[in-house]
Amino acid sequence: MSETADSRKELDARGLLCPMPVIRTEERIKQLAPGSVLEVRASDPGVLYDIPSWCRVNGHTVLKSREEFEEQVVIVRVKDA
């Protein structure tokens, strides 16, 4: 599946502390179709480690993770069925 601007979903987890960004990511991914792309924005620097670890355990793919100003951004592709 090719990614388009319309296919990328967003999750605002700013202001949440561990483990809530991961929990919200999990809840949101359950609502998405396989192959969808989710961009998570958070203020907790731990998400740069926590979300990729959760993705490895659950079979999702981290496409990119970065710090952007004072936010952390993790882009995840939902695993295929």
Score class of each variant (00 low, 15 high):
residue 56 R to L: 13
residue 27 E to V: 09
residue 57 V to G: 10
residue 28 R to K: 15
residue 40 V to C: 01
residue 51 I to W: 02
residue 17 L to P: 01
residue 18 C to R: 08
residue 41 R to A: 08
residue 58 N to K: 14
residue 44 D to E: 08
residue 54 W to A: 08
residue 50 D to F: 10
residue 43 S to I: 02
residue 72 Q to S: 12
residue 17 L to D: 04
residue 63 L to K: 05
residue 20 M to L: 15
residue 66 R to F: 11
residue 65 S to V: 00
residue 26 E to A: 14
residue 20 M to S: 11
residue 37 V to H: 04
residue 68 E to K: 06
residue 79 K to Y: 05
residue 49 Y to C: 05
residue 7 S to F: 07
residue 39 E to V: 11
residue 69 F to W: 07
residue 35 G to C: 05
residue 55 C to P: 05
residue 14 R to V: 01
residue 14 R to C: 10
residue 3 E to T: 15
residue 74 V to H: 00
residue 4 T to F: 05
residue 18 C to N: 08
residue 29 I to W: 01
residue 78 V to Y: 06
residue 12 D to S: 07
residue 69 F to M: 12
residue 26 E to L: 07
residue 3 E to D: 13
residue 37 V to E: 08
residue 17 L to R: 13
residue 47 V to A: 03
residue 32 L to H: 07
residue 11 L to G: 03
residue 54 W to T: 04
residue 9 K to I: 05
residue 2 S to E: 14
residue 30 K to M: 09
residue 81 A to T: 08
residue 15 G to T: 04
residue 35 G to P: 04
residue 20 M to I: 02
residue 14 R to Y: 05
residue 3 E to G: 13
residue 53 S to L: 10
residue 72 Q to V: 05
residue 63 L to N: 00
residue 45 P to R: 09
residue 43 S to N: 09
residue 67 E to C: 02
residue 49 Y to W: 09
residue 34 P to L: 09
residue 56 R to C: 07
residue 78 V to G: 06
residue 64 K to V: 12
residue 43 S to D: 07
residue 25 T to N: 06
residue 3 E to Y: 07
residue 5 A to W: 08
residue 10 E to G: 12
residue 59 G to C: 13
residue 2 S to G: 09
residue 76 V to S: 00
residue 21 P to M: 04
residue 23 I to G: 10
residue 9 K to T: 12
residue 81 A to Q: 13
residue 14 R to K: 13
residue 7 S to A: 14
residue 72 Q to W: 06
residue 45 P to E: 09
residue 43 S to Y: 04
residue 10 E to F: 15
residue 8 R to S: 10
residue 16 L to I: 05
residue 15 G to I: 00
residue 61 T to I: 14
residue 14 R to T: 12
residue 20 M to A: 15
residue 64 K to T: 11
residue 27 E to S: 14
residue 33 A to S: 10
residue 22 V to M: 06
residue 52 P to H: 03
residue 64 K to N: 14
residue 48 L to C: 06
residue 49 Y to H: 15
residue 34 P to C: 01
residue 24 R to E: 15
residue 39 E to P: 07
residue 65 S to P: 07
residue 56 R to V: 10
residue 27 E to A: 15
residue 53 S to Q: 13
residue 58 N to F: 07
residue 32 L to F: 08
residue 11 L to C: 03
residue 52 P to I: 03
residue 25 T to L: 07
residue 6 D to L: 13
residue 8 R to W: 02
residue 33 A to D: 11
residue 57 V to H: 13
residue 44 D to P: 00
residue 32 L to I: 06
residue 46 G to R: 13
residue 22 V to A: 00
residue 56 R to D: 15
residue 44 D to Y: 06
residue 3 E to A: 14
residue 37 V to C: 08
residue 69 F to T: 11
residue 79 K to R: 15
residue 17 L to K: 12
residue 30 K to V: 00
residue 63 L to Y: 03
residue 44 D to M: 00
residue 37 V to W: 03
residue 15 G to H: 05
residue 51 I to L: 08
residue 12 D to A: 11
residue 39 E to Q: 15
residue 62 V to N: 05
residue 15 G to D: 02
residue 24 R to M: 14
residue 1 M to F: 09
residue 5 A to N: 14
residue 38 L to S: 02
residue 80 D to N: 15
residue 77 R to I: 03
residue 42 A to F: 01
residue 35 G to S: 08
residue 36 S to G: 11
residue 60 H to A: 05
residue 54 W to G: 01
residue 60 H to L: 09
residue 78 V to R: 01
residue 73 V to Q: 03
